[in-house]
């Protein structure tokens, strides 16, 4: 098993922490993991992306040439990464703010309206775990139990009161994701 994933969007959307939760979940299941951020001078509002690799064998390069899955959260990232998905791979995106939708026919494309749903529920900070839930529905590389453990590991103790809401968001995300046919 080897999953090479990129999560890309704006800084502040929780791109890096979503990757971190996933990486921790991989560790919980005994997998090898790498988490490589394209760090920049920007914080909130700038572009942010992270490459997460989960594998049952030692990971050679933390930098991937093509991705099994891309989670795209803004137009700039769509423009940049749609072409870097392996044929037969998966593209997941939130339609919010996307004006040019993906056009590739050799990959599976899913949409998840997490921005709208999180806003409707008044839990905009759960946006990223909602996306994560959707991703895991499509690509169950780790179990939901491992993700819940990973969530706990990646959050500081003072934020543990947020765990139930995050777990709920993972469940909601799984129901929200739709394949674009």
């Amino acid at each position: 098993m080897k999953e090479e994933l990129i999560i890309a969007g704006f800084g502040g959307q929780g791109v890096l922490s979503m990757g971190k939760i996933l990486a921790y979940s991989g560790v919980m299941q005994g997998y090898e993991v790498s988490w490589m951020p394209a760090y920049g001078p920007e914080m909130r509002g700038g572009t942010a992306n992270v490459t997460v690799i989960i594998s049952d064998r030692p990971i050679s390069s933390p930098i991937a040439h093509e991705y099994d899955t891309a989670i795209i959260l803004n137009q700039q990232s769509m423009d940049k990464f749609e072409s870097q998905i392996k044929p037969g791979g998966v593209l997941i995106y939130d339609t919010n703010g996307i004006t040019h939708h993906p056009t590739r026919r050799d990959i599976r494309i899913f949409t998840i309206d997490a921005t709208a749903e999180a806003a409707r529920r008044g839990t905009i900070r759960m946006f990223n775990t909602m996306i994560l839930g959707g991703y895991l529905k499509v690509r169950p590389v780790v179990t939901r139990e491992s993700v819940f453990e990973g969530l706990k590991k990646s959050l500081p103790e003072r934020a543990w009161k947020m765990l139930p809401a995050n777990e709920e968001a993972v469940r909601v995300g799984a129901e929200l994701i739709k394949e674009k046919l």
Binding site: K20, A23, V27, E32, V33, S34, W35, M36, P37, Y39, I59, P62, I63
Partner: peptide, 10 residues
């Protein structure tokens, strides 16, 4: 370098 410094691994 920035790759090894910034990346997370086990």
């Amino acid at each position: 370098d920035g790759v090894i410094g910034q990346m997370m691994e086990k």
